[in-house]
Nucleic acid binder design. Structure first.
Ligand SMILES: [Mn+2]
Ligand SMILES: [Mn+2]
Ligand SMILES: [Mn+2]
Ligand SMILES: [Mn+2]
Lengths: 148, 148
DNA sequence: ACGGAAATGTAGCCGATGCTATATTTCAAA
DNA sequence: TTTGAAATATAGCATCGGCTACATTTCCGT
């Protein structure tokens, strides 16, 4: 199980356990932003703007929690807003939302394709989506195309 | 896209967006414990005990971080240890480790089965594993059995 | 036009999870 | 048996992401 089994002499770049965990930690720290941008995009499409109250209700958190998260989004250049007004995504925010939404849908489609009940697929995808790499995404696409 | 499209009069239990996000938040708060118990089980099998230094190195964190996490594990009844000695899992810890390891392997197997390169499968599984429900797990098993 | 309810903002608390710096303990080599 | 290096523990700092309580602003109905 140890990563130096059969360690070769030449300069192969090994993926260590630490690499995997470090990757997962990095993703964990951006997952919340991904959910916020995706949600703000949805609300903007539905209502023309994303109100703090609606964001909080959809996420199942209190409004101060949503407010604080939006402050972080603004600090990171993903959103803009004026006091007591709706929240809007920046270019970067829109780009993130688009990518996240595409991933979300693709993960759900794949789960359903391998036999996961739609309800469970939707539920699990909300967490899984953030950890699916580009490589895996491509594989999902290829799998979904090349069947039936 | 709104969840009250075609809302029925009778008492169907709807899964709201908030339910999904709340579920994902709950899982996020246990994911780290799952990684720790799985890792401690591995190290115990390899070396007869899990030393703080080894835990920290495998996870890619500093040893004070690992130490503090082990304190939380102990508080939650998942591990035991005496000062300056190795860490061991309790019954509950072993049970968690077993379940997590089974999930980890199954997720990797499924990803590979749908065409994800093994390297990427291992990498992504480290995050994905925590969000796979029992229902989805069963579906993965069925899928892996019922092919070839 | 205004008064009150709803929405939004802010202050402050908490635990989790990371870090660095420092203290303490263990253990093996000399 | 001593002692120094490695391992472990602890102290203290920071950010994140939850919460409650309270302050402020907006806006709708009368
Ligand atoms: Mn999500
Ligand atoms: Mn999503
Ligand atoms: Mn993991
Ligand atoms: Mn794992």
């Amino acid at each position: 199980m140890s990563s130096d089994d059969l360690a070769p002499e030449d300069a192969v770049t090994e993926t260590t356990d630490a690499d995997r965990f470090t990757n997962a930690r990095a993703i964990r720290s951006t997952a919340l932003f991904e959910d916020y941008t995706e949600l703000i995009a949805d609300l903007t499409e539905e209502f023309g703007e994303a109100r703090i109250t609606d964001i909080a209700r959809r996420l199942g958190v209190t409004h101060p929690t949503a407010n604080k998260a939006v402050l972080r989004l603004k600090r990171e250049g993903l959103a803009i807003s004026r006091p007591y007004r709706g929240v809007f995504l920046t270019e970067a925010g829109v780009a993130m939302a688009k990518a996240v939404k595409a991933r979300h849908r693709l993960v759900v489609r794949l789960l359903i394709a391998v036999g996961v009940p739609p309800e469970a697929a939707e539920m699990d995808a909300e967490g899984i989506e953030h950890y699916v790499s580009e490589t895996t995404l491509k594989a999902f696409e290829a799998y979904l195309d090349g069947r039936d």
